[in-house]
């Protein structure tokens, strides 16, 4: 496998920003109550991440060290505002349901993290690819969590009925807890468990082992 391809594919599972690096959790909890919002948020984040990685990487040789963070944030914030405005203009209903979470992409550790860790040290081409890979990795987890929450919480997918719920005379009793934030933690926890069982390399060393017996 070529280096480029590996670099692009690794953030999907092996170095997934959410399940391995545990970044961007806030929005992953908030927007995954339905597939529609999860998909919109994923697209918005991926677009912002690719654009910011490209621009920051193009400017990387001319960014004075002392003010690099503020320059990065300025660039990311402008991209986020433009994205938010586009959503408000062309996807008004969804943008209202996403409320402040699109604007909060500015403070998403994932975007700034990729800018600092990758785009500042690599040319624009690989940086955009890295942004795309990480954006898709984030999207993948969001969509999985959104799928489970919407299916079990409402019995629908993208708003279309899949499991006939008792409200409309069917057999499926929706699990209300799936629409609350804690359920996203449960699903993320199970996902991380599953991935680490499958890829033991991701398991971190236990820094604070429990001792068998407390002295004294």
């Amino acid at each position: 496998m070529s280096r480029r391809l590996r670099q692009f594919l690794s953030p999907l599972i092996d170095e997934n920003p959410i399940t391995l690096q545990i970044l961007g959790i806030c929005s992953a909890l908030a927007v995954t109550t339905s597939m529609t919002t999860a998909l919109t948020m994923s697209a918005a984040l991926t677009a912002v991440l690719m654009a910011s990685s490209g621009i920051i990487s193009a400017l990387r040789r001319h960014m004075p060290k002392q003010i690099r963070l503020i320059l990065q944030i300025t660039i990311i914030a402008s991209l986020v505002i433009v994205t938010d405005l586009i959503l408000q203009a062309y996807a008004f209903e969804i943008s209202k349901r996403l409320s402040i979470f699109v604007s909060l992409v500015v403070t998403n550790c994932l975007v700034l993290g990729r800018a600092e860790a990758f785009a500042m040290h690599n040319p624009p081409g690989p940086s955009i690819l890295d942004g795309l890979g990480n954006g898709l990795g984030y999207s993948l987890i969001l969509l999985i969590v959104g799928f489970v929450r919407e299916l079990l919480g409402r019995g629908t997918l993208f708003g279309f009925e899949v499991l006939a719920s008792v409200d409309t005379g069917g057999w499926f009793q929706p699990l209300g807890v799936m629409l609350l934030a804690p359920s996203a933690f449960f699903i993320l926890g199970l996902l991380i468990w599953a991935i680490r069982a499958w890829r033991p390399a991701q398991v971190e060393e236990n820094e604070y082992p429990l001792s068998a017996r407390v002295e004294g």
Partner: peptide, 18 residues
């Protein structure tokens, strides 16, 4: 990059374009 002029110019340019 570390000169004062460049720092001011970069800060100003990025802010203006954004």
């Amino acid at each position: 990059n570390e000169s004062r002029g460049k720092m001011l110019a970069m800060a100003f340019l990025v802010a203006a374009v954004s």
